[in-house]
Design a protein around this nucleic acid. Structure first.
Length: 397
DNA sequence: AGTCCACAGGAAGGGCAGGCGA
DNA sequence: TCGCCTGCCCTTCCTGTGGACT
């Protein structure tokens, strides 16, 4: 037997820390959602009329990241579909995450995605937007009954393409004969409704459901529930759950973060062939998650964004401004074999990197010395080193 | 109070890729 | 196949801006 085969065999024989790892994935839907009874009930009573073929009110759901908005919405819709499936009412639910790049981040892409979800065929490009709208409407009309459209991260969409699209969606019922549409908008931004058109606002927020952040105790109970199903018995050291929930509670009560911490800590322990998950694993999980998030974000960026980031992390310490970055970037881009983009475009890409949380770019005025962005990289040294290596290898600089 | 800097960021338009219809 | 149309990415041109300096 080869040494690699031995390694695999040994892995198979080793007892896993996990009982069912899926439970610890953020996409997992538990049967019993803790601490969200009120929101589940509210949403359920708002959506219930669609079981009798009536169009329910539009709903606006908001709360910060990891407060269970998506989970509760999907859960209620699934239960609704089950009941509708048994009865005579026709019901369809379409869920779209508007933040997905290249999928639903422009008017065209979003309407194309909606149309496709409803069974229509739409090419990735080439059609006029009106034509895509038309296909979407036709697909809606074909469905008959009630269609619930769930638009997750709707705030990101509106920031990018404005609220005209939402306006059209809230008016769609006027043009449809056999189908009734209800919208559920999910937003992480609590002030989102303040910067949309008043007509859209009144129509979209006929009903509002607020998801407050979980507190430390609530997070602890949620984690306990997942641990019982996800981990084998007695593999968690004392204090692991408390530590995960405390860390996540300090980050706006983000349950997703708490569950990720727990899973990654378990993975780290298992990889090291340890019998128990300890708080030390949680600390390292915290670092690893941050590292992976940033690295993934950077990997998915276009080439020039990456060159700009590489330029920034290789600049001397001290104050860095847009102009300095642009000067160095031009040189770097040529060395990487590309024609440099204009300063205008680079300015936009810097703003995007800031939005991603990879760099900090704050607009400052230096008085007589002009207005610019002050740029810094607030990442852990090990993350910066990793990014530096990845980008250096990619561009052979 | 007025000037001036170094950009930020809005608007318009060009080039390209890709679909549609004749 | 070809002309036309569109979305997307990018450039060009432009106006706006906060605060140090005079």
């Amino acid at each position: 037997m080869s040494s690699l085969q031995e390694k695999f065999t040994e892995y198979l024989e080793r007892e896993s820390i996990f009982k069912n790892k899926d439970v610890l994935s953020t996409n997992f839907h538990p049967d019993n959602i803790l601490h969200r009874d009120k929101q589940v009930d509210e949403l359920a009573s708002i959506l219930a009329p669609c079981l009798k073929g009536n169009d329910p009110s539009n709903v606006f759901v908001y709360g910060t990241v990891g407060t269970g908005k998506t989970l509760v919405t999907k859960h209620v819709c699934e239960e609704l579909m089950k009941v509708a499936g048994n009865g005579s009412s026709k019901l369809n639910v379409v869920y779209i995450n508007c933040k997905m790049k290249k999928v639903a981040d422009t008017e065209y892409r979003l309407s194309a995605k909606l149309a496709r979800e409803l069974g229509a065929e739409v090419p990735a490009t080439g059609l006029p937007t009106d034509a895509v709208y038309e296909r979407f409407f036709e697909a809606l009309e074909d469905k008959t009954g009630v269609v619930i459209l769930v638009l997750d991260e709707i705030d990101a969409l509106v920031r990018k393409i404005g609220d005209d699209f939402l306006y059209n969606l809230t008016r769609v019922n006027d043009d449809l004969k056999s189908t009734k549409v209800s919208l559920i908008g999910i937003s992480n931004d609590l002030n989102f409704v303040d910067y949309i058109d008043a007509r859209v606002k009144s129509s979209l927020s006929e009903e509002e459901i607020i998801f407050p952040p979980y507190d430390g105790m609530e997070l602890k109970r949620i984690l306990k529930q997942r641990c019982e199903e996800g981990f084998n018995e007695e593999v968690l050291d004392n204090g692991v759950i408390s530590k995960c929930s405390a860390l996540a509670a300090s980050e706006h009560g983000d349950a997703r973060r708490a569950i990720d911490l727990l899973r990654v800590a378990g993975e780290l322990a298992e990889r090291e062939d340890e019998k128990k998950v300890t708080t030390k694993h949680v600390d390292r999980a915290q670092d690893k998650i941050e590292k992976d998030r940033v690295v993934e974000a950077v990997r998915s960026q276009p080439k020039h964004s990456q060159i700009i980031l590489y330029t920034i992390i290789n600049m001397d310490e001290g104050e860095i401004h847009t102009g300095d970055v642009y000067k160095d970037y031009q040189d770097m881009a040529r060395r990487a074999g590309s024609k440099p983009l204009t300063q205008r475009r680079v300015s936009d890409l810097i703003a995007e990197l800031d939005m991603l949380g990879v760099i900090n770019a704050r607009v400052v005025s230096k008085g007589r010395y002009g207005r610019t962005r002050k740029i810094s990289v607030d990442l852990d040294k090990s993350i910066v080193e990793k990014l530096d290596n990845i980008l250096k290898n990619k561009f052979y600089i």
